[in-house]
Amino acid sequence: MSNYNLTHLDELESESIFILREVFAQFENPCILFSGGKDSIVVTHLTKKAFYPAKIPFPLVHIDTGHNFPETMIFRDQIVADLDVRLIVGLVQDSIHSGRSTEERGKNASRNVLQTNTLLDTIDLHQFDACVGGARRDEEKARAKERFFSHRDEFGQWDPKNQRPELWNMFNGKHDHGEHFRVFPLSNWTEMDVWQYILAENIQIPSLYFAHQREVIRRNDTWLPVSEHIHLNETETPIHKKIRFRTLGDITITGGDESDADTLEKIVDEVAAARQTERGNRADDKRSETSMEDRKKQGYF
């Protein structure tokens, strides 16, 4: 008998495609939560493969804090044009204007937490019943507990202690009106799998992931990019460094690493040798030991 084995990347891809097709079949109005980061780019790529030769049947939703890397925005608009999909943008600035959200103050102020309100309002406005995201279980300990199909109540809340059992490859997307699901096709992927897959499939990603010269300051043990959204104190002097970003969030909270990895092959080697987790440079996760669990319960990504 011949060898009917799949490689791990083929098996992960097949699992993700199965899940994306279940989303299409089980829900009326799904969307993809698109941040411009590598994980949501891979989810979008997998969706393209799942429905080929038809177009991606879901709109992309971007929750825009206004604190973006300019490169991310250019990339977002390019991918939307290439795929001929609908883009829906929820603006955190609008939530602040309307009084729904209040800007944080202080030195490490960010709009990370404010995204939750804007996200939930956007889901409500467009009546999405499934939001596909790129979160992975290996990223963070609260995410290790996530289901593929993760139920959210009418307030958009996650109840981690009372989740539906998920057996075999059977996904229960039943819900009441006003409730929705978050769906995570990359649950079983690791950071390394994502990078290997980007390399194997030659997927386009923002230039920020590659080593480049940038004006930065040293803060909280990381190289934080200088931008109009960051307030420098007297002791902080901007310098130029060759850095790259392992993850992309808001420009105010995403730190870079010194690196010479300017090709996908070099990035893969760098990730293989890394001794810190990829979210180690994300100020949003460092607020407390349970900051991800706390934010997720409220409705965060």
């Binding site: 300990k141 609260a142 507990k145 079983n188 349970t290 669990e293």
Partner: peptide, 19 residues
């Protein structure tokens, strides 16, 4: 152990996936 309640009580309640 991933969840706050699990770490507090020192027990595993739910399935957790490791890679």
């Amino acid at each position: 152990d991933g969840l706050k309640a699990e770490r507090e009580q020192g027990i595993t309640i739910d399935v957790a996936y490791r890679y």
